[in-house]
Write a protein that binds this DNA or RNA. Sequence first.
DNA 1: TCCTCCCTGTTC
DNA 2: GAACAGGGAGGA
Length: 293
Amino acid sequence: MPELPEVETIARTLAPQIAGRVVLAVRVLLPKTLEAGGALLPEIAPGARVTGARRRAKLLLVDLEGKGGAPYVLAFHLKMTGRLFVRGPRDEPGRHTRMLFDLSEEGAEPGTEGKGKSAPPAPAARLFFDDARTFGYCRLLRPEDFADWPFWRNLGPEPLSLEPDAFAARLRGRRGAVKALLLDQTVIAGIGNIYADEACFRAGIRPDAPAADQTPERFSVLLGRVKDVLAESIEQCGSSIRDYRDANGDAGAFQNLFRVYGRGGEPCTACGGKLRKTVVAGRTTVYCDRCQK
DNA sequence: TCCTCCCTGTTC
DNA sequence: GAACAGGGAGGA
């Protein structure tokens, strides 16, 4: 369940492994995984160079430079069980591999432009997109295509650079539970079930409290705790429940610092009371009814 | 604004 | 062999 800190960690660990390599071939093993941009594949393979990897919301973005310098982006949404990792050029797809990218060594020349003189570079690595549950997807986009993608267009601001006033303004007049708004990617981007519960606990706010009842001061505290949990988790390289690994195959450590997520029925770390488990916004939710009001 | 569904590996 | 995990699309 990669949320903002996990995707951020993947971007940071993936970038140095793929930047500077040339895409030699793309294989789509499960057609629906390539949700958009299939017609653009011939423009990037073979010959486009990877220039970097970054994150926006829960999307992992791989930047490419095509022939003539034209920019392209591979946008991956990992949903619950998606994984991106780099292996050797002869590693074969596994049962859950959905897409596969053959990559040259770093700094290789694209090689297909020459009039047959220079042989195409040999594959030196493979980027795997694995996803057991097949909810994840990839889009191949030109910069101008992003405007036609409603999900992208409607994404809310990044929490880590969001100011309290702007946050309050986005929440003004909104109905529903506080947690529902934290999970709404058009309100604030990148938060999922784990960090919504953890932030509510640290802010002392019940996840099911109506947003309309909250004062600007409480929203300001909530945003502060959202930033805290996200920043701490990034420091810990994210949370690993079961599937999540970064692009080096390493687990994160923030799961060891959970105070409520996955701890229903256990004692509250603050007051010792029994943590409650309910459903809010259609998601399993854990909170302390003594510490959170 | 809320509910259901998509999907399959893991746990009960 | 059923319940559960859950982001986001789509329908009520």
